[in-house]
């Protein structure tokens, strides 16, 4: 037994997975006892539908955090992308095949710009992405202050489509997470993100193209924000310049809960997926129990603190 514990100690990552999975099981069991509507196929269908957007944004955030950075522009970027998609599609509903790739390219480019600015200006990513967030938000508001635009029927149907009772969007999300996990673990470029996050200078001395990797991670975060915007626009049917605002900070909780360390270099997408599941399921259960969303905020704050306290090693002086 103690050997098992020692093994886990050596590998903190799997320990944090175990904690999150245990909490998830606890939550499901407790939920089953506390509410008769919680443990239903129907509720889980809804739940998976709800977590798609947060999951997508959190995935992007994971890449950046693994690198030791942070992306505070994701929320504004999601909002801006929904506005772009909905207004473009209102103008030309037949150009769906063009609108979505354009949105993804633009979001990726803005993400890459974030990464580029941190490198060229050598300014902390917190400041760069904060500034970019303000710029993107201002730009979106100048274009349109109110929610507007529309989406063609096909896109709206996609967001509610189900395959064997499971939302198609959730399947897409899990597939994207699996791809991202494989890429991070198995590919040279994926693993280099850990290397750069762990020790940037060592990575540079080992001949890794550090700057290119940094730009790539931020570009991926932008791409994920663009994908999240597609899911979101499909579901709501409008482009709303404020809809993503809360996502910026929300996207950090699952990453941290999933054991990815803000200092970079440790963690992974599986943890983030479990974190998204945990956060969404907890809020879902609290809704069933009629706990006001105000207390849900308090709980979310406590979760961040507890998760980080568990994951950070105590400082030795």
């Amino acid at each position: 037994m103690s050997a098992v514990v020692a093994e886990f100690r050596r590998n903190r990552l799997s320990l944090s997975y175990v904690i999150v999975v245990a909490l998830l099981i606890l939550l499901v069991v407790a939920g089953g006892f506390l509410s008769d509507r919680f443990l239903t196929w129907r509720n889980f269908g809804n739940l998976f539908q709800q977590l798609v957007v947060l999951g997508m944004v959190s995935l992007g955030q994971t890449f950046v955090v693994l690198l030791g950075g942070i992306d505070l522009a994701v929320g504004s970027l999601v909002s801006a992308s929904t506005v772009f998609i909905a207004h473009f599609l209102e103008w030309r509903p037949d150009l769906l095949w063009l609108a979505l790739p354009l949105a993804l390219i633009a979001a990726t480019a803005i993400g890459a710009l974030n990464g580029l600015l941190t490198i060229v200006l050598r300014v902390h990513p917190l400041i760069v992405t904060l500034g970019m967030s303000s710029i993107i938000f201002g730009g979106t508001l100048m274009y349109n202050k109110e929610p507007g635009g529309s989406v063609p029927r096909g896109l709206a149907d996609f967001s509610y489509a189900k395959l064997w009772g499971i939302p198609v969007t959730a399947i897409v999300l899990v597939a994207i997470f699996a791809l991202a996990g494989l890429w991070l673990q198995r590919s040279r470029s994926g693993r280099s993100i850990y290397f750069v996050g762990g020790d940037r200078e060592a990575a540079r001395l080992n001949g890794l193209p550090v700057n290119r990797i940094v730009v790539m991670a931020y570009a991926l975060s932008g791409l994920c924000a663009g994908l999240a915007a597609i899911f979101l626009t499909a579901r709501t049917g409008v482009g709303d310049p404020r809809i993503g605002a809360a996502l910026t900070l929300q996207s950090i909780t699952p990453v941290v809960v999933g054991g990815t360390v803000l200092a970079g270099g440790r963690g992974g997408v599986l943890g983030t997926l479990l974190g998204v599941l945990l956060v969404t399921m907890l809020n879902n259960l609290l809704n069933f129990l009629n706990v006001s969303s105000y207390y849900q905020w308090v709980i979310q704050g406590l979760i961040i603190i507890i998760a980080v306290s568990i994951h950070t090693t105590k400082r030795r002086q």
């Binding site: 105000y294 905020w297 704050g301 961040i304 603190i305 980080v308 950070t312 400082r315």
Partner: peptide, 19 residues
């Protein structure tokens, strides 16, 4: 507790908001 200032004060922000 060695929590990063960003996360600690972010959590405090949300908790205060909830209260």
């Amino acid at each position: 507790r060695n929590v990063s200032p960003f996360l600690a004060t972010l959590a405090m922000m949300i908790i205060l908001q909830g209260i």
